[in-house]
Amino acid sequence: FPNVSEMSLSGLTLVEGKAMMIKGIKRKYHERFDLSLMVAVPKQITIYVTGQVDGPGLRTVYDSTRISHVLKSVGVAKGGSDLSESVYLKRQTENGSFDEYKLKLHDIFLANDAKQNMALQNGDIIAVPSIKSYVYIYGEVSRGGTFGYVPGQTLSDYINVAGGPTARANLDSVTVTRQEDGRPKVYHINASQILHRGETEKDLEIIPGDVISVPGNFFYFSDFASFANTVLLALTLYTAVAGR
């Protein structure tokens, strides 16, 4: 295709580069054609990763590697991570200054947003701030709510942190809801065996984002008297009406 001008494919994947070349060729030629595009030796670039990551420092990756690949390799966005947070990418411009991009983890990993999941260039700096992680517990505990994630803590630890179960708690039917591969998975746990019988091997280690639910018993003794009085009153009224 001698009449097609030079094309820059920097920052594009093979699929994106092929699509761009086909579009450019079709501007000059209307005949049918087949185009194959491959890279014999991918160019390597050096980037720097800093912040709350596993093993910060210099890393060598292939040119145009997406930021999601690097973030996964340094421990960001593990199962249960809070994907509402953001990371930052700094890129040097031709005049020596730096452009900074704020990139949302949700858009990078779940929304498949190519503008957020940027292709990396040589010299890029990825900064990962401290990502807040939480555990949520509600239901029949003394102080339900949001608690900071502490590595290594288990279900029983968080129930105790929340003030322990109330008298009406049904510990046989505790659930832990966890995001796995983008979908919620529910673990059904008999916490009574853990808290009252000491069967610690059945305790579940909690990860960031877990939601712990402690249900209540349908009947509880203090409520039973009220329930019985209500039934007795209803029967009395029914008897009185039926006897007329």
Rank of each mutant, 00 (worst) to 15 (best):
N122G: 13
V150N: 02
V174R: 01
K72L: 10
D223H: 10
Y220V: 12
H188N: 14
S130L: 09
E205Y: 08
A77Y: 04
I131R: 01
N3F: 08
D63M: 08
V174Y: 00
T146D: 08
I207L: 10
T175I: 08
K102V: 15
S97R: 14
F1I: 10
S133H: 11
Y101E: 07
T175W: 06
V211P: 05
K23F: 06
E201G: 09
G57D: 10
L232R: 10
V41Q: 09
N217S: 10
T60P: 05
Y136K: 06
V128G: 03
G123E: 01
I125F: 01
T50M: 11
K23Q: 12
E205S: 09
G123W: 04
R178S: 11
G11M: 05
V141P: 03
S142V: 13
T175S: 06
I47C: 03
D157S: 10
E100F: 02
F109Y: 15
I108N: 01
K43G: 03
M7S: 11
K115A: 05
S84P: 04
Y220M: 07
S173G: 03
K102R: 12
N3Q: 05
S8N: 14
Y136N: 01
V211Q: 14
A77T: 05
F224K: 14
S142C: 04
G57H: 15
Q179D: 14
L233M: 10
N217R: 09
S226I: 15
H188G: 06
S192W: 05
I22G: 02
D157T: 10
A191D: 00
E201Y: 12
L110G: 04
F218P: 07
